[in-house]
Amino acid sequence: MLKNKQVGFLGSGNMGEALIHGLLHSHLCRPEQILCSDVRPERLKAIREKYGVKGTSHNPEVVKQSDIIVLAVKPQIMKQVVEEVAKYLDLSKLIISIAAGVPLDAIESCARKELKLIRVMPNICVSVREGVSAIAGGKHASKEDLIAAKTIFDSVGKSIIIEEYLLDAVTGLSGSGPAYIFLIIDALADAGVKVGLSRSDALILASQTVLGAAKMLIETGEHPGKLKDMVTSPGGTAIAGLHTLEEGGLRTTLINAVEVATQRSKVLGEIIKNNLTNEKA
């Protein structure tokens, strides 16, 4: 799928580097197939030396030489970057944006032309190749383009293909989700300390428990309720703990957190869209 493609990254921050690492680690690309840009010379130097890829400070050079372009820049500078390279963009190039909150039509508006666009919402866990990403195709993106995007993001975890209007919900669940889980792990470790464990042991026990539970759920394909029932026994410790969690409203609180984060994502997306489309060139 990517064997003969040149892949360009506009922006070589944490997300850009994670994707470069994933592509190389999964042997989907060779270093010479990847060209990246960044405004920071020291960052480009570090990426080139670490991964053996090509680097430049000139965004147009990346676009001209690439078949697939990943827009890995902050939403605040998206307009500036797209306008800088717009003359080199056309429907022959697949453009993948990972800029949070930037809708596909806003990117086309900045470029003042129709483009072959895909928008992706990854999460921070791509940095350890265990992320999850949601992929939404624009009107000119073909099935093959979506498969190419999925191949890229599967190299850093798992990915799903959805409609663009659902990306705010994805942001509320999996985009913000690592923060929820970090809080839960921290709380579990605090609990371990309270009942006599050392902080280091409690953190290992809590984090590995979350990892193992997630892996068991994924690999068995069982409903989480069924797996929960496997842990609980009549009058046992797990059911006593679950009763306390339900009494404290954990389930409702998590549902509310996802819902509030989703609504906040919609508000921020509207602000970003208005800023992009209303700014004067």
Rank of each mutant, 00 (worst) to 15 (best):
K3M: 11
N4K: 13
K5Q: 15
K5C: 14
Q6V: 15
G8I: 04
G8L: 05
S12N: 07
G13Y: 00
E17W: 00
L19E: 10
H21T: 12
S26M: 11
Q33F: 04
D38I: 00
P41F: 02
L44G: 04
I47K: 01
I47L: 08
K50N: 11
Y51T: 11
G55Y: 01
T56E: 03
H58Y: 07
V62L: 01
K64A: 14
Q65K: 15
S66I: 08
I77K: 01
V81D: 09
V82M: 07
V85R: 05
L89R: 02
K93N: 11
A99M: 01
V102S: 06
S109F: 15
R112S: 15
L117P: 11
A134E: 08
A136V: 06
G137Y: 07
S142H: 04
K143V: 14
I147T: 13
G157L: 09
I160Y: 12
E163V: 05
Y165Q: 14
A169E: 08
G172D: 07
L173R: 06
L173G: 07
S174M: 03
G175E: 07
G175T: 08
S176T: 15
G177I: 05
A187I: 06
L188Y: 04
D190N: 10
A191T: 12
A191W: 02
S198A: 07
D201C: 01
L205F: 10
A206C: 02
P224Q: 07
K228Y: 01
D229C: 02
P234E: 02
T237K: 01
T237Q: 00
G241M: 04
G249L: 11
R251Y: 13
E259A: 15
E259G: 00
K266D: 05
N274C: 02
K280H: 13
A281Q: 14
